[in-house]
Design a protein around this nucleic acid. Structure first.
Lengths: 335, 335
DNA sequence: TTGAAAGCGCTAACAT
DNA sequence: ATGTTAGCGCTTTCAA
């Protein structure tokens, strides 16, 4: 393996100069840089990240902690983050918790990340106080995506508002019995969105004078299967809701399925709206409140990289806009 | 930052012994190991992967090169691989090409990976001869998933057979005008599955005496949108096919959509079958040839780790079984 | 603009 | 079972 030393010998210069030339630092004459680059190429020089990391304390690697890569939403954020990291020459270390508490424990509790990454991106997880403490002690930039964590750098949408938009859309269509399918407001993969969305739903309903009814609120675990189960329950009782607001498109898709199973037509018999604008949403004709998923990944990555370079940077809370996308699963209430 | 040296000083032993104790090597008395562990914990010792990597030449990191994480199929494989890597204490470096030729170039051409990872997993990509050459010169275990590359360690399904199963299912239902939606057999994100599946389709048709008709073969680019476009075309002509076999579930979902747009009922007017058993397949009632996606990731990861530890290991070609899953998008031909 | 030299934190070969 | 001793390949003062 040819090292910086071989190149130095080849161009008859010190390794220090070669290192500087290779990294594009200033204070190297153009002629020298040219000779170094040429020699490096000719000798097939490949830098050693381990050696650079050991010497500089920087790894040019960012950890991304994700609840489940198999969920389109998370994968899209990862993709966004990867793009900007790659552009800037950073590598992405993926930690997929996949609903596994021990995986979560391993990533947060052991100081696994300490000397391994320059920054951390946490997706849609609400770290516990203890976990936050460990993240803080990493002494590295951390950005949290999709959760509201005051004092931390975050990138998210206004979940309360998004839920409000969805609920209001149904109200505007004349619906009054509006069910809500959400998710546990705490647990292994908890984040702050579920509670904010639930609150947005309740608030908006209350403004109409209609008090939220507990029997209209169900847990769909933010999965298609969960949404299916929840909607089955909601729709099979007597006095069923005329509309369902699911806090995620996947749950909404489950709800569509439940309606179909029960012989209910959408939107004639029941309207359904979700949040996300999932890649499959348009194929289900799903009305939804779209959020810029991919973009959240890009912004978060940009943010940690800025923290890494800017001398005095301080945590920022970015809130990205959402937009109501009306398709064909919501319609005027039939009287 | 406390290092191995601090622990050595604390327990009054050499760094070599501490290193051995920490790594669980044999040749360390139980008493010593205990004291070292206790001291390490007490001092808040965190190992430095860079230092270990530099000294040992091993990074305990595996690169996973994926066409697009946002596609469920790839994400599921990544998840499978991540599980076994994590169990064994390896980290996963994600390289997402996302249809970007320059990203592909960057990963393969520059020797980015050389001193960075211990092994490489390549998903559903057919490396060019030049790329294969570079992979080979990494001198590291490489496993290719979803492509048929003789001489290399691979994990995949029998694509020819899977396509045959799907086609035969349609034939068994009485269909004769069976269209095929596949994907380019070369390009930036090419792999060997498209051609094998096309061949399986053609072969099976030929056995019935029906020569494959070029006008029944379309390109759906392995995406929902592509499948939609292709099926629109196929279904709007005169003498339209009575069944469509899409080489992936996503394209099949697009085909379902096209049928719906054109006012055709599935399966009464047209049968549709896919390959994969995508997580959304059951919600579309899609008949498909299921493949063990997650498992392919696990097997591939297990394979490279074995290559890393076994003294004399040689590349193996693992073929995982597929299974016809009949749902409600295929039915007997109506005469 | 360049060089000398120390050292980042660990592993591994060789001793004992 | 434990210690000694070289590095691994790079970055980073400090000097020139």
């Amino acid at each position: 393996m040819t090292s910086i030393k071989d190149v130095a010998r080849d161009v008859e210069m010190s390794t220090a100069t070669v290192s500087r030339a290779l990294r594009g630092l200033q204070g190297v004459s153009e002629e020298t840089r040219g000779r170094v680059m040429e020699s490096a190429r000719r000798l097939g020089y490949v830098p050693s990240p381990s050696a650079a990391g050991l010497a500089s304390g920087l790894t040019r690697t960012v950890a991304v902690i994700v609840p489940r890569v198999t969920q389109w939403f998370f994968a899209a954020i990862v993709q966004g983050a990867e793009e900007v990291l790659r552009e800037r020459g950073y590598d992405l270390l993926l930690y997929n918790l996949a609903g596994d508490a021990s995986a979560r424990h391993r990533v947060f509790e052991t100081n696994l990340l300490t000397k391994r990454v320059d920054a951390v991106l946490v997706l849609s997880l609400k770290p516990s106080p203890d976990e936050l403490d460990r993240l803080l002690r990493l002494g590295r930039p951390v950005t949290i995506i999709g959760a509201d964590m005051p004092g931390w750098a975050t990138v998210r949408i206004d979940d309360h508002e998004a839920a409000s938009t969805a609920t209001q859309h149904l109200l505007d269509l004349g619906h009054r019995r509006i069910a809500y399918i959400g998710g546990a407001t705490e647990g292994v993969l908890d984040f702050t969105a579920p509670s904010a969305r639930l609150a947005g739903y309740r608030c908006t309903l209350e403004r109409t004078g209609a008090p939220p009814a507990p029997e209209l609120e169900a847990d769909g675990a933010f999965t298609v299967a969960g949404g299916l189960r929840a909607a089955r329950e909601l729709l099979s009782g007597t006095d069923r809701p005329t509309a369902i607001f699911a806090a995620s498109d996947e749950m909404a898709i489950g709800a569509l399925r439940a309606a179909q199973e029960l012989g209910l037509r959408v939107p004639e018999d029941v309207s359904v709206i979700g949040i996300d604008d999932h890649e499959m949403a348009s194929y289900f004709d799903l009305t939804t409140v779209a959020q810029p998923v991919h973009e959240q990944g890009r912004v978060a990555a940009t943010q940690v990289l800025a923290a890494l370079t800017d001398d005095h940077w301080h945590p920022e809370q970015v809130i990205l806009p959402t937009e109501l996308v009306v398709r064909r699963t919501t319609a005027q209430l039939r009287t």
